[in-house]
């Protein structure tokens, strides 16, 4: 659990700025970061923390913006083993479950 990230979440909520918290809850195979890694995404699309960068992170960021609109948490399933992943240059090739939830705001 990263202190700076929790601090960031508290700050954003205090400012009334809507944001989504993405937490990797499960990893299978080789993924860039382990379970427990978190990233904050603001409604403006800014991020705090990293869940590994690259296309996977970009996809989670997009999804987080949707979750913010919807207002309901969800488990986002990323399959980095698919052919498209290789085409996109994602080298790690694992499966990642990310819990994305809207926080305050």
């Amino acid at each position: 659990m990263d202190r700076e990230l929790v601090q960031g979440a508290v700050r954003l909520m205090e400012q009334g700025e809507p944001c989504a918290l993405a937490t990797i809850i499960q990893v299978k195979g080789s993924a860039p970061r382990e379970a427990g890694t978190q990233m904050l995404v603001t409604a403006g699309g800014q991020t705090l923390g990293t869940i590994g960068g690259g296309c996977a992170e970009a996809a989670v960021r997009q999804r987080a913006l949707l979750v913010l609109q919807k207002g309901e948490p969800e488990i986002y399933h990323l399959d980095l083993t698919a052919d498209t992943a290789a085409d996109e240059g994602m080298v790690c090739g694992g499966i990642m479950d990310v819990f994305i939830e809207p926080l305050g705001g």
Binding site: V10, M13, E14, T23, L103, G104
Partner: peptide, 26 residues
Amino acid sequence: DKLAFFRQLLAALEGQQPGVAALVVK
């Protein structure tokens, strides 16, 4: 609420206090 909870979590982290955070995912 969430803000109060995250403040508590931050206090535990800053106070160097061990604990376990649980989150319902399903």
